[in-house]
């Protein structure tokens, strides 16, 4: 149990998906204009990543049974695309309230490299089934935290008056760099 807790803590802070691994930078920079939408995106990613970590674990076991490990990239991306479609339909049918808040983000998640990245890291590090789910969930929580913090900072940035050429993306990137530097502080901790 402590093992899993340590894994989760490390995935959220020390090896934060955005600030130390760069998985999922496209939505991080694209959908972080407002804290509300950032939170929505983060929750949708958390949902999909937790489920897909479990699903890809199973798929990999099946592939490994037939010695087809080299097909993992194709298999995973298809599983993720199918899963996102399925979750979208499921939410629309049974939980309309959740669908109306997360719905617009779901199609974007297929090409979010955080989801595929988590699946591949799970395989690379040889996580067990439980560890895979815990890792997927906590990495997504780390992603959500990063994108919400960043959206909050970007709201403040809108009132700033930088040199013209730094307006927009460059300023946002430099801010992200400063936040990443703050997250470096966590890497001083040694765990396990």
């Amino acid at each position: 149990m402590t093992n899993i807790l340590l894994l989760m803590f490390s995935a959220i802070f020390i090896e934060n998906f955005i600030f130390s691994k760069f998985y999922g930078c496209c939505p991080f920079l694209g959908v972080s204009e407002k804290p509300d939408t950032a939170l929505g995106m983060g929750m949708a990613v958390t949902f999909v990543m937790t489920v897909s970590s479990a699903a890809t674990y199973g798929v990999y076991q099946i592939l490994a049974m037939f010695g087809l490990e080299y097909l993992k990239t194709i298999a995973f991306i298809l599983v993720i695309a199918g899963l996102v479609q399925f979750i979208e339909m499921f939410l629309r049918r049974f939980i309309p309230a959740l669908y109306s808040s997360l719905g617009i983000f779901l199609p974007l998640i297929t090409t979010n490299c955080a989801v595929l990245g988590a699946a591949l890291v799970n395989i690379q590090n040889g996580h067990t089934f439980l560890e895979s789910i815990a890792f997927g969930f906590s990495a997504a929580i780390g992603f959500t935290m990063a994108i919400v913090i960043f959206a909050g900072v970007r709201v403040r940035l809108r009132g700033a008056n930088p040199p013209k050429c730094f307006k927009g993306m460059p300023l946002a990137l430099i801010t992200a760099g400063l936040i990443a530097m703050a997250f470096l502080g966590f890497s001083g901790m040694s765990i396990g």
Binding site: F22, A172, L173, I174, A176, A180
Partner: peptide, 12 residues
Amino acid sequence: PAGAFITLGCLI
């Protein structure tokens, strides 16, 4: 990682 964000920001 921090340097990556900052360098790319300056380049853009």
